[in-house]
């Protein structure tokens, strides 16, 4: 456990100093700060637009950070030969991989916490929303985003055990899009009650639905954007989602370890 935590700590230290990540983070934070000025562009209710906009910025920025952060985790260690010194110590490969993943998740959490704090500050200072209920309602959405991004990071770590960073960027990005933006589309294709779908397309859509994690489930921002909307049985829904994410993360890490264990580095 000591080895895993040490590797995680070092990974965190490196990640929070990577300029490319800091630039992405800075852009995200800047958008959050100027977001109140952009709401005038929309005729919809100001607060609704601002909430949707800021949460959208956090989600998009976090997704880019999660992918950019993790696609280089293993390849960088191999290229710089740091992995040889580490693996020549009493460290097993699974410990190395899990340590790298945890370090990336810690770094992701730190960066998301910074963006969330900025968002809450924007609402408190510029919109005068200082009640714990209002801010708490907003803050729980990025928490679910964090779980979502941890899952996305596990996808990227899995791919990083056998593909190059560039390929991984597109693969992980593709998986995220299929599991979130296009999830409804695949759901419709896989629906057995629809007779107008080609059986082959339906079978393919079903396979994709089973394999690709459903990132859409973690998008709980609607209840925060539209105060009238509530999630029925929110606690059990949240626990279920976290369990779902942990299950997928475990599967992805185990698969990554099995590949990495036999890989020539």
């Amino acid at each position: 456990m000591s080895a895993i935590l040490s590797i995680a700590k070092t990974t965190l230290g490196e990640a929070i100093r990577r300029r490319v990540l800091l630039v992405i983070l800075l852009i995200g934070v800047l958008f959050l700060v100027i977001a109140p000025g952009l709401e005038a562009l929309s005729p919809r209710q100001e607060a609704t637009v601002l909430r949707a906009l800021t949460l959208g910025v956090i989600q998009l920025t976090s997704a880019v950070i999660a992918i950019v952060l993790t696609v280089y985790l293993i390849p960088n260690e191999i290229e710089r030969r740091t992995i040889y010194t580490i693996l020549s110590k009493p460290v097993l490969r699974w410990q190395f991989l899990v340590g790298k993943y945890l370090g990336a998740v810690f770094a992701l959490g730190l960066m998301m916490a910074l963006m969330t704090a900025t968002m809450l500050l924007v609402f408190a200072v510029m919109k005068g929303q200082t009640s714990v209920d209002q801010l708490g309602g907003l803050a729980r959405v990025p928490v679910m985003f964090f779980v979502q991004m941890s899952l996305l990071a596990a996808v990227a770590v899995f791919f990083s055990t056998f593909v190059t960073p560039v390929v991984n960027f597109f693969l992980s990005g593709g998986v995220y899009l299929v599991g979130s933006v296009f999830n409804s589309l695949f759901e419709a294709f896989a629906d057995p009650s629809r007779g107008d779908i080609n059986p082959v397309a339906r079978a393919l859509a079903t396979v994709v639905q089973v394999i690709v994690p459903n990132f859409q489930n973690f998008n709980v921002q609607n209840s925060a954007i539209n105060p009238g909307q509530v999630i029925q049985g929110e606690l059990s829904y949240t626990i279920g989602l976290i369990g779902y994410a942990l299950f997928y993360i475990a599967i992805l890490l185990i698969a990554g370890i099995l590949i990495f264990d036999r890989r020539e580095v």
């Binding site: 070092t10 230290g13 100093r17 710089r80 030969r81 740091t82 010194t85």
Partner: peptide
């Protein structure tokens, strides 16, 4: 123990 050729260390440390 092992000392690799041209070792690299985490530069922030």
């Amino acid at each position: 123990s092992y000392l690799p050729e041209k070792p690299y260390y985490y530069e922030h440390m």
